[in-house]
Amino acid sequence: MKTTWLGTALMGLIVGAMILVPFVWTGGEAANLVALILVWALFAIGFDLVFGTAGMLSFGHAALLGSGGYALAILTVAHGWGFMPALGMAALVGAAMAFGLSIFAVRVSGLFFSLLTLALAQMIYVLASTKLRGLTGGLDGIAGVPRPALFGIDLYDNDNFYVFIVVVFLIGLGLMALLRASPFGRSLRAVQANEVRAAQLGYNVQRLRQAAFVISGAYAGVAGSLLASLIFYISPQMLHWSVSGDVLIMTVLGGKGTLLGPVLGVAVFELLKEELSQYTQYWYGILGAVFIAATIFLPNGIAGLFAPRRDRDKGEGR
């Protein structure tokens, strides 16, 4: 879906303002919360390359996020790697995991892709919590995941680490903007819009889908690493199916198929969670109801509000 220029600018302003908040309110909870939002947003914009742009509903993205997080945790904690090389490696591991899953998953299309990614990711979850205990620490997970040391700045300070996350997020966002606007990004949209026609024009549809999935895996790998580093901890919880569900909810709430929609969706999700969980322990169910309502009444999410009128109610992005 396309948002208008004005809409995109407005969304950009909102995201920009959100990023600036912790610079104003230093030393408080703001840095932690917005950092969490930005890390999840990185995950979500990667997810949306597969979901919103290429049109494949992956239910297995938890496996990609988790494998990146575990890669960083294992390399730094058990093997003494530096943070930055480990972060790069985590991106590769996320991509490699995505490639591994895609070998099976892109063979089937449509709804089967969702079923299959869900099942395969569940397998990774089971493996990490049982058979690979030696590597992953089983259900206990790995504690003491470090933060980077850069230019002698103390990144264990939340405000400083926040700056690091903002930088990584902006690089990720910029690369994704370029990717989406490039011929490659367009070809993914073409595959989504009409798979048969795209193949008939000479596009290798399976290869394109696989490429999108692998890139998405790299994003998830980086996001998983930053998440583990943000909370100093990783457990199989990061591989749990509900993580795949959360990123889906965020993306739909924000607006799939747009660059900034998923970012807004993450922000709304996290803020709703913060607010609702103060009043009730059953906040997740309320979020579910919000999600159902959004699916019916706001198919293009928040970004849909910024779209030309004629595109609004269609549930576009086939």
């Binding site: 370029l178 990717l179 606007a181 490039s182 011929p183 490659f184 990004g185 367009r186 070809s187 073409a190 795209a198 024009l201 000479g202 596009y203 394109l208």
Partner: peptide
């Protein structure tokens, strides 16, 4: 979209279309 398909085997990802 059709023209890109015809001209490139690997779709360029480094420049806007």
């Amino acid at each position: 979209i059709a023209a890109f398909a015809h001209r490139y085997r690997v779709q360029p990802f480094w420049l806007p279309a």
